[in-house]
Simulated assay, not measured.
Amino acid sequence: MDTITLQCRFDLEGEPLYTLKWYKGGKEFYRYIPKEMPNTQVFPLPGINVDRSKSNPYEVVLRNVQPEATGKYKCEVSSDAPNFYTVMESAYLFVVDVPVDDPVMTVDKEVADVGSTLTGNCSAPASYPAANVTWYLNGRKIPQSSQRLLSPSELQNAVSSASVPSVSSRRMPMVAFSQLELEIDEETFQNGKARLKCTGTIFHLYKREKEIVLEEERPRPKPSSVLGIRDAAGGKRIPNCICLHVKGFNSLT
């Protein structure tokens, strides 16, 4: 498991340090009092494992970090007599269980016609917190999609069921499962093909994607790039333009 370091930098402007305390969610788990022996105390707290040998007044090292360590941390510093000034700062720690696999993406058909509806499913691997799944069509984000958080065991039921159960727990690895219904219109395909992609992201730590190339069932004919008229005598195509020759230059108007 990973090790993290909590840092608390302070300047008492010449005042002696009386005590330094660390809290998680309002509960104290580390205390340093330089005048006492031993000068360090550690209080048991679920998910918090302090490495005493590597901790000091300026930083506290947590080992074997689990998702339960996620939460708000506060450092409180107090000066000694006669003033006993106290200052505190807090920060939020999010422990991320990053997946290593790519998202899994399926569609009900890879060949579609204009006017039809395509259904797609995309699930990011189990992680904590769950990944955010985003759909793209030809490089553009598709806003119309639904996403639910499922435990790995519930994912199988969700794929084959119309109703997707909701999960309230956020302390276990979750699968981000997204369903998409895409109305195929004339702008979906480019030269008879369309690129449908789903991307799974977790902050800046994880970004994986899966892409499927869709094909148009009855590709529309491409517009001709050369327009012209035919010679009534020989049937030869003549460019529909007026060409002028001026001082050695060919100009088209």
Rank of each mutant, 00 (worst) to 15 (best):
M1H: 14
T3M: 15
Q7T: 11
D11F: 01
E15Y: 09
E15Q: 11
E15W: 04
Y18K: 14
Y18R: 15
K21G: 09
K24D: 09
R31W: 03
P34C: 05
E36Q: 10
P38T: 07
Q41C: 03
P44L: 06
P44I: 06
G47F: 03
I48G: 02
N49T: 08
N49C: 10
N49I: 05
V50S: 03
V50I: 11
R52V: 14
K54F: 03
K54D: 15
K54I: 01
S55V: 10
N56S: 14
P57E: 10
Y58K: 06
V60A: 11
L62H: 01
L62C: 04
N64F: 06
V65Q: 04
Y73A: 04
K74L: 15
S79T: 02
D80V: 07
A81Q: 13
T86L: 00
M88Q: 10
E89M: 09
S90M: 02
S90Q: 10
A91V: 11
Y92A: 11
P99G: 08
V100T: 07
D101G: 04
V104D: 11
V104L: 10
D108N: 14
V111R: 11
D113Y: 06
V114Y: 00
N121K: 13
A124Q: 05
P125S: 01
P125Y: 00
Y128G: 04
P129T: 05
A131S: 15
N132Q: 15
N132R: 14
T134I: 15
I142P: 03
I142Q: 04
I142N: 09
Q144L: 08
Q144M: 07
Q147G: 04
L149N: 08
L150V: 00
L150P: 00
L150Q: 02
S151T: 15
S151G: 06
P152T: 13
P152R: 01
E154Y: 04
L155F: 08
Q156I: 09
V159D: 01
V164P: 01
P165S: 10
S166N: 07
S166V: 06
S168Q: 15
R171P: 02
A176G: 10
A176Y: 02
L180D: 02
L180V: 10
N191W: 00
N191M: 06
G192S: 12
G192E: 06
A194D: 06
R195G: 01
L196S: 09
C198Q: 07
T201Y: 05
Y206K: 06
K207L: 08
K207S: 15
R208Y: 07
K210Q: 12
K210N: 08
E211H: 03
I212C: 03
I212D: 13
L214Q: 00
E215N: 08
E216P: 01
E216I: 00
E216N: 05
E217F: 03
R218T: 15
R218Y: 13
R218A: 14
P219M: 03
P221E: 09
P221Y: 05
P223V: 07
S224L: 11
S224K: 06
S224Y: 04
R230I: 12
A232K: 02
G235M: 09
K236G: 13
I238T: 08
I238Q: 14
N240H: 13
L244F: 09
L244I: 13
V246E: 10
F249E: 15
T253W: 04
